[in-house]
Design a protein around this nucleic acid. Structure first.
Length: 385
RNA sequence: GCUGGCUUCGCAUAGUGGCAAUUGCGGCAGACUGUAAAUCUGCUCCCUUCGGGGUUCCUUGGUUCGAGUCCAAGAGCCAGCA
């Protein structure tokens, strides 16, 4: 079933959108945060634990599943849903982010035809093309496939980006031509860094190819600053159709979710809640101001000695499984011991934290008070607990 | 009782005579945005205005310009023989 987006309403005083995504008879509310399960698993969590966080769509990654276990094995299993025991919608990233994280960093070739990688598993040479990426995603049988794009580093200059978006558009077209899974939607990706004309060009040309949804990419790379991220969104959303889903790739921090929804974005994904969790951190309400003045996500590090005797939940009032049943002292103990259950509990809390934020934003849009919600989000910045 | 070995900064270890001294663990913090990430980084004798300063390698004495390193004695631990 192709994905269908229904715009329910736009906030009276901002571009924030309340909507529903339909996959056949299943429907999910937007704005929505999508947990990431790169290797066909949300790290440290069972599908039941993920489900208890009330997500909609979850992610998996084409590049990783291509190398291991291979698309053939997934197909043999009966598709990605059966393979990983996930009956909700799955979106597969195309491998475009790996062009940034693996190819750019290692100075591998990015050519018109495709991208050369060196396998991190065995060092073998790999070549991923737009056609190959779509073919793999067709075989994986995810619900939403992403076009294979170049995700350029934040340091890329105007001329580089100009060439890059033109090539990414050609890649999108090539991918669309070979896409042949009738049950799978295909999204196009807008790139162009923080430049208005590039974003506009990329958005208009990508939309002209008529994809099932659109995403804004290249906004969550290395030392990308928030201003550039917000510019990229501001310069992209005006050219995206109202009746299609808008996906901001790789974001992120609670403050970024609020700012992106404010600018008309519907869905997000980010590894941060699960990675922070494995590294011992829990998201908590409020903001923390970075040394350079940037507002960042507020969090506590459960490995810190100060939590040894703290028998309160991670976040008072949170309805997640971790907060309902366990204390900071216990999670501190688990993290100190390297017990995976600690990472699981923190992952559950962090994912639920972002999903709750989306629930709150939906409520605010429904009541036409998103601006007020956003103001309060900044005002209620507590210092770390 | 005899013979041999050992003793280093919380623990365990590396240390050719130039050493505030290796590495791991532990400890204290930090980073993390479409996952090369249950990872990575910094600090971990004392003081410091971050330039540096002060005390260290079981104890005592010695050789030496210089000793964690060599010599002697003592203490403790381990092994073998009595």
């Amino acid at each position: 079933m192709k994905v269908e987006y229904k715009l329910i309403k736009t906030d009276k005083n901002s571009k924030a959108r309340l909507g529903k995504v339909h996959f056949g008879d299943k429907a999910y509310d937007t704005p929505m945060f999508m947990p990431v399960g790169t290797q066909a698993t949300v790290k440290t969590l069972s599908p039941e634990q993920v489900k208890a966080c009330h997500p909609g769509i979850i992610l998996a990654n084409t590049y990783h599943l291509w190398l291991r276990p291979t698309p053939e094995v997934v197909k043999e299993a009966g598709g990605l849903h059966k393979f990983m025991n996930w009956d909700g919608p799955i979106l597969t990233d195309s491998g475009g982010y790996q062009v940034f994280s693996l190819a750019h960093n290692k100075k591998k070739d990015i050519t018109e035809e495709g991208v050369h990688f060196k396998s991190e598993l065995d060092g073998s040479k790999l070549f991923l093309t737009p056609e190959k990426s779509i073919e793999i995603q067709n075989t994986l049988d995810s619900d939403i496939a992403m076009s294979f794009d170049e995700c350029p580093p934040a340091t890329a200059d105007y001329n580089y980006l100009k060439n890059s978006i033109e090539r990414t558009l050609r890649w999108a077209e090539r991918g669309k031509k070979v896409h042949n899974n009738p049950n799978q939607s295909l999204f196009g990706i807008v790139q162009g860094g923080p430049y208005e004309d590039l974003r506009r060009w990329s958005a208009e040309h990508t939309v002209a190819l008529n994809f099932d949804g659109y995403s804004i990419g290249g906004v969550a790379n290395d030392d990308e600053c928030k201003d550039d991220m917000y510019k990229a969104i501001d310069f992209s959303t005006p050219y995206l159709p109202e009746d299609k889903l808008r996906y901001l790739m790789g974001v992120g921090e609670p403050v970024d979710l609020v700012e992106s929804v404010f600018r008309g974005v519907d869905i997000f994904d980010c590894v941060s809640p699960t990675r922070l969790a494995r590294h011992g951190n829990a998201l908590v309400p409020g903001l923390r101001i970075a040394p350079d003045g940037t507002p960042k996500e507020n969090r506590i590090n459960l490995k810190n000695a100060r939590f040894k005797h703290d028998f309160t939940p991670l976040e008072g009032g949170c309805d997640c499984y971790a907060c309902q049943h366990y204390t900071k002292a216990y999670i501190h103990h688990l993290m100190r011991c390297g017990e995976t259950f600690g990472a699981s509990l923190l992952s559950i809390h962090n994912i639920r934290f972002l999903i709750r934020l989306c629930e709150d934003m939906r409520q605010a849009i429904a009541e036409d008070r998103f601006l007020e919600f956003r103001d309060n989000f900044y005002k209620n910045s507590k210092s770390p607990q």
